Amino acid sequence: MSVGDLTHANATVDGRLAGTVSTSVVICAYTPSRWQAMCDAVDSVLTQRLPVDELLLVIDHDEDLFAAALERYRGSVMPKVLRSTGPRGLSGARNTGLRAAGSDVVAFLDDDARAEPGWSEAMVAHYTAEDVEGVGGYAMPDWPDARPSWLPAEFDWVVGCSYVGQPTTVAPVRNFIGANMSLRRDALVMVDGFDSSVGRIGSKPTGCEETELCIRISQRKPAARLLFDPDMRVWHTVSRDRTTFRYFVSRCYHEGRSKAMVSRLVGASDGLSSERAYVSRVLPRAAARGLASCTRAGLVRAAVVAVGVAVTSLGYLRGRVGSRSRGVVR
């Protein structure tokens, strides 16, 4: 079923201020190993200072997890527990939530993220401007122990969090971090939702489905504004396995391959516009700062920057070569 097959429906909540947009929140879950994190994510949405209109918990092709979630929330108004009806993977699950959502705005929160109490309030405030089609926020890393001393803050995107190089005040951006983002439902329907050929499937460290989606919206509506608001904050849990250098290398490589896929789908000009500035300005400053520190930790971080750039570039080139061999490069 296409998300474009659905008509727009507005939801309302008693006591909502006149003119305030209605909001549906979609949380997608795929593994019982994140059970407690998933429950914490749900609770964080249900305790917002500005209540949301709808909370949809989409289970991605795991019947045991679906049964457990259905039992836990049986008799509750929210969340509504759904099976993913799309292809296995995050994009298919998000599209299931989108099809079921009935509000003006659809927000997406990861199953291992917890929204701060003012999250929905910060988000909704921007939608009073008609040209704002989406609002994304800041994702703070919740480390299992201390932050790895070797990991430059410029690479916190590796663990799904905000990173040095992003705006520090409200500003237009090309795309959002997938753990913490929202879009008008009409805009999502206009582009037929997420592309299921892009994005994470299970624990495989791929991504960029939100990047590709945001670019398609901007291409269809050039006047649209996608805003980043650092006050729209969530805590994003970083599992212990993602604090290793091995995961860092793997994630960088798959990010490169994902960027190659996005460039194929939307064109390299838009697909790499933010990355050019990041590589040419943000990362050289990070490496220089590490070298100038004359400390072991600083030198290690400078080396990690170089490794990250090299491995991501390798993944991108491999992805482009693979696309050429299939005759699908733009």
Rank of each mutant, 00 (worst) to 15 (best):
G4A: 12
G4I: 15
D5V: 06
H8K: 04
N10H: 14
N10S: 14
T12A: 14
R16G: 04
T23N: 08
S24Y: 01
A37I: 02
M38Q: 11
D43H: 13
P51I: 05
I59Q: 03
L70C: 09
V77Q: 10
M78T: 12
G89P: 02
S91K: 03
G92R: 04
A93G: 10
L98K: 00
R99W: 12
D112E: 07
A115Y: 09
S120E: 05
A129R: 14
V135M: 00
D142N: 08
S149G: 00
V159K: 04
G160A: 06
G160H: 08
C161H: 07
V173F: 12
G178D: 11
N180E: 07
N180Y: 10
S182P: 06
S182A: 15
A187E: 00
L188P: 00
M190E: 15
M190H: 10
G193C: 08
F194T: 00
S196Y: 01
I201T: 13
K204F: 12
T206F: 13
I215E: 01
S218K: 15
A223I: 01
D229Y: 06
V234F: 11
T237D: 08
R240S: 14
D241W: 07
D241Q: 13
R242T: 11
S250T: 14
C252K: 02
Y253F: 14
R257D: 01
K259C: 09
A260G: 09
L265D: 04
V266G: 05
V266A: 06
S273N: 12
S274T: 12
E275L: 14
E275N: 08
A277Q: 07
A277W: 14
P284G: 06
R285T: 11
A292M: 12
A292W: 04
S293N: 02
C294L: 14
A297P: 00
R301P: 03
V304K: 05
V305E: 03
A306I: 15
V307I: 15
A310Q: 08
G315N: 08
G315V: 11
G319E: 10
R324C: 11
